[in-house]
Design a protein around this nucleic acid. Sequence first.
DNA 1: ATCCTCCGTGTAATCGATTCCAGGGGCTCG
DNA 2: CGAGCCCCTGGAATCGATTACACGGAGGAT
Lengths: 338, 338
Amino acid sequence: MASIKDVAARAGVSVATVSRVLNSHPSVSPEARARVLAAVDALGYRPNAVARSLRTDQTRTLGLVISDVLNPYFTELARSVEEEARALGYSVIIGNADERPELQDHHVRTLLDRRIDGLLVSPTDGGSPLMLDAARAGTPMVFVDRWIPGVDVPVVRADGRAAIRDLVAHLYGLGHRRLAIIAGPAATTTGSERVEAFRDALREHRLALPEAYIGHGDFQADSGRRSTEAFLALPEPPEVVFAADNLMALGALDAIRAHGLRVPHDIALAAFDDIPWFVHTDPPITAIAQPTGELGRAAVRALVDRIEGRPPQSVTLPARLVVRSSCGEHAPTRRSNP
Amino acid sequence: MASIKDVAARAGVSVATVSRVLNSHPSVSPEARARVLAAVDALGYRPNAVARSLRTDQTRTLGLVISDVLNPYFTELARSVEEEARALGYSVIIGNADERPELQDHHVRTLLDRRIDGLLVSPTDGGSPLMLDAARAGTPMVFVDRWIPGVDVPVVRADGRAAIRDLVAHLYGLGHRRLAIIAGPAATTTGSERVEAFRDALREHRLALPEAYIGHGDFQADSGRRSTEAFLALPEPPEVVFAADNLMALGALDAIRAHGLRVPHDIALAAFDDIPWFVHTDPPITAIAQPTGELGRAAVRALVDRIEGRPPQSVTLPARLVVRSSCGEHAPTRRSNP
DNA sequence: ATCCTCCGTGTAATCGATTCCAGGGGCTCG
DNA sequence: CGAGCCCCTGGAATCGATTACACGGAGGAT
């Protein structure tokens, strides 16, 4: 592959001049510029990003460590992140943690080794030493969706409290009284927060959230299945299952179906995170939708601000309830979209 | 961030020795090794992958350019690719083309600029000059899922012909005679191939595939919607719609629903590419499943073989029909899985 | 005419690693 | 006792860029 030296030789100039042309430095004569450009063209020369990064100490690359690529929510997040980053002149390297802290660390480590300019993380756990060290060492970093408390890192996320209150009100209005939740890992903010919000909302209706009605999931389909089975085995099973993410809702649906029960006739189901398929499941699933694309874009903007020396800002956007039919039909406060 | 020089200084050795320790070169005294390791530890030193790559001319990184991250099929592919690559000591950088050739080129270009060791591509089109040049220039490359004819690049893919024949037989057995297909872009192999296989299978039953029954989609949900609307507007609409990928099936479902029709009562639906959600749609969708994980792994193995100087092999794995209820009930040849 | 300025250019240092080569020192063997 | 070898080590070149610095020449000001 042709290097800058080859271009210089062919154009009859020094490598410095070639570099100047490539970086559109002003003091280059038009003739030299033309000759360099011609040589670049003739050789099909492309600057070596590796060498450039070594010299300039910047890679114009962002790392994105997401909790699970198979989750459509994160996939959509990744897409909007890449889009915004590209618009700002950055590339994105995605690391998939599969909800496993050690895999998350693996990706953070290799991303750091590659000297990415900044890191976007949706932490799978309460924060490994590695990640904490990186944050303290001054690696530009922004948390998306989930975050780690007590670390001085901007957070871009959706606030689901209001939507969860709306959901509980909706369920209450439908006559449901025994509401269960399949939570995410307590180590994640979204795991604990959604339970808290749910509990608080129940309290407003003078409803309790017994321990048996809290499923301890891990944001994966299988845990949704297991939790739901545990609920169904209870002497008094819940009337509603609220899954804290879409994959666990899928698992719950599997389990309900395996028991020969029907939604919402026998048991109601709702989920956090809305995805296109929820419109077409049997029945369409009532869900809480996050402004995913906007979150991704805001996260990138915050990170790039931080990288380029501007003060980054935390952002919290509201989530909203999308009512469908998985919790019962009469649907008085219909805010759904098609 | 600490560099190899800092480590050398602290350990009281030269950078050469540090490098030797790091690369477990045999000729280093135990004492020197211990001192270096201690210094590495004390400084939290991590080798700069950028510098290393510049020197060794290898990045131990694979590029993966997929057609669409929002498509669960590709997301699963990406996951298995990353997994296998990690097992072999490589990282993966994913580029999402969003089914847009110019975006695909953008990613191929930046990946090449970063001097990735090899490229895994699922081409969005018939092959841009850039990609063709890269292949000719000897960039290690492997096509996954889709490929470009006439280029000497190994292909790892699923063969859907047999499964499509099974599907058509299934449909025919159910009494359907007017079968339509929503195809992908003709420029993609999977786009044209699936239509061909479908047409051939129809012929075996002495059925024709009129032009009006071929929807020209682009593998995105919206095109599935539009094609289906066109079908429904026909004086004699088809009895079955077969979508060449899962996103277009989703769009078809939207359109059918918008017309107030029901599947499979009013019109049957089947799709290429099976995804977990198809079990839970209303009704569960009959689909052709690819061995996605195996494809991803095989593709990585082929690429790494190529990179490391072993002869790479093309791989073709069979897809299989998964019968559910979206084409009608009586289901005689039930091969479904739960 | 002389001096200063500015423009265009090239030389060379530099980024952080890897690796070739040479050399010092200890050991074996004749 | 000396030659030769191996082991360990450090010096220095190198990868492909960017960029500080120096320098020559042209043009303007006095």
